[in-house]
Nucleic acid binder design. Structure first.
Lengths: 297, 297
DNA sequence: TTGGTTTAATAACCTAAGTTAGCCAGATAC
DNA sequence: GTATCTGGCTAACTTAGGTTATTAAACCAA
């Protein structure tokens, strides 16, 4: 990924952002970063993406971005802070569906619906940037590469959901927690938020229970078990994975759904222009998708 | 949904199909039907969709359409028969992820990956039509409406997955089974395969267990309970829902994710051409993030 | 027909996780 | 300062669902 383009993108995004920079570094245009993992982008495509973050808004811990069943009027990206989507159940309990980190696009699942299927709330202070349906459609019309990229992101979300479904349906409490911790470990490592197996996890045990389909009490028990087995230490919002690979093995973690590349074919511009019969796009070298470890560099 | 166009589409699809018509009626071009639920289609768009079903192939009960981890080379539509996608777990158990009915597109979740995340197998004899990645990309390039439609379908799949996740994570065996039965009831009703609450359900209790994250024994127990409560009768592959609404209520069924339409806006051709004519999009006022209390009003 | 295989029902027993409750430590409020 | 609140830990008890096993009924192949 061409460093000068990246630098330009950052500069632009930094200019756009109103909020000061809280605790994350280098997240100014996490969206562009996310796409750049898959494919190279033309200048116009970058602009289209950066426009998604034209309207950054500060949000505080606990803020509801939108409520379940509210009208679907927009989506948003999150550029700083953590958020989660959730559903309130009939019996008063609650299921957290997904934890969002900087760079994630929130609410795309609602594209096909007039009312939201899930609420979204901030876990901690952060910055979100709403954008409209029209913007998404403009992307569809403007760029096959971006369209395929968006499509790929939704597919990937579905893969993550599938993985979580299997976890909740089939695995023990220890496996569920191990899987969640290891997944967060990988996702955070990718954005440089892990230090030697240690990272910040700003979720209460109650919230973890809501993620994992467990009671808060049992989450506590499970952490205790991990501590006694020398696998995980947790102190308030800091966790340390003492043996990440053991966690991965325990939970039968298969990282394919996080790491596996979009087959280069679909984003190979040479191939595309060949198909389109003509637009002369200079042949940037194809960026291979890197493994998390490579990405952390 | 112009009837004459529909008729033409059927005629074409019927001509394409090699297999004789088994037990389903009116499913010849279920894909087109699915899209027509959301939006009107131009002739070219219909052709693009019908081309997805250019290569129908007969498949027998138990046939594996593709294996978990195999290379992603194509997707397919199912025009006759039932199928399911599954993952084999480390401990020898198995999770069925989704049951496919005629008209469904299979494997789109794999779009973003080079290897399949789940296998797909036929539940009973049927007809499937493979199509290639390139075909999908051709659709992206050719038609914004179809692209948005595909996107909507993936979003909808995600919504169904979310619903199942909540079921598996949070609900009792009775609720899970009730939810599954009621969902199948609605999906089958839509394609005219329900008669007075009774329909064919060609899944063994073992397979149902794999769908619901339960042991086959407990599926049996739960059916027994339903029988004793006068809710459901089951004889081999026939089930009768004696009181569908009671099942819906028991399982806290929320049909939004099945019924709710894609907002017409996104497929309004007049609006689209307006956009394409180049009218600049005015900057809409930004909706500020609200606090929970403010939103509750 | 027979004999083998799959599917389903039911019973007896076991275990992982839920529930309730009491306690303590930080954090926040007065 | 004290009071209150939230989050977390542990223990005692309960329960939903898993496991194993037995039996019977369908189904199928020779």
């Amino acid at each position: 990924m061409c460093p000068s383009c990246l630098a330009r993108a950052y500069a632009y995004a930094r200019h756009q952002l109103t909020g000061d920079h809280l605790n994350v570094n280098l997240q100014d245009s996490a969206i562009v970063q996310q796409f750049l993992q898959h494919c190279s982008l033309s200048e116009e495509e970058k602009v289209l993406l950066l426009e998604l973050e034209q309207n950054p808004i500060k949000a505080s811990a606990g803020d509801i971005i939108w409520q379940e069943n509210s009208k679907v009027d927009q989506f948003c990206t999150i550029s700083q802070g953590w958020a989660y989507s959730f559903r309130n159940l009939g019996d008063g309990s609650r299921q957290i569906l997904k934890v969002y980190l900087p760079g994630d696009i929130i609410g795309m699942r609602d594209f096909a619906f007039s009312n939201r299927l899930a609420g979204v709330a901030m876990i901690e202070d952060g910055v979100v940037s709403p954008f409209s349906h029209e913007h998404l459609l403009r992307i569809f019309r403007s760029s096959t590469a971006l369209t395929a990229g968006l499509f790929a992101i939704v597919c990937r979300q579905q893969a993550m959901l599938t993985e979580r479904l299997i976890n909740l349906a089939r695995r023990t409490a220890q496996q569920r927690l191990a899987h969640f911790l290891y997944e967060m470990y990988l996702r955070l490592e990718r954005i440089g938020a892990v230090n030697n197996g240690r990272f910040r996890l700003p979720l209460s045990q109650e919230q973890l229970g809501d993620v994992l389909g467990l009671s808060a009490v049992h989450v506590s028990r499970t952490f205790t078990a991990f501590r006694e087995e020398g696998l995980v230490l947790r102190d308030r919002h800091r966790v340390a994975l003492l043996d990440p690979e053991a966690l991965a093995q325990l939970s039968e973690f298969d990282g394919t759904y996080l790491n596996d590349a979009v087959p280069a074919l679909f984003f190979d511009r040479e191939w595309q222009s060949h198909m389109l019969a003509g637009t002369p796009i200079k042949n940037e070298e194809m960026v291979p998708v890197k493994s998390p470890s490579a990405q952390a560099d």
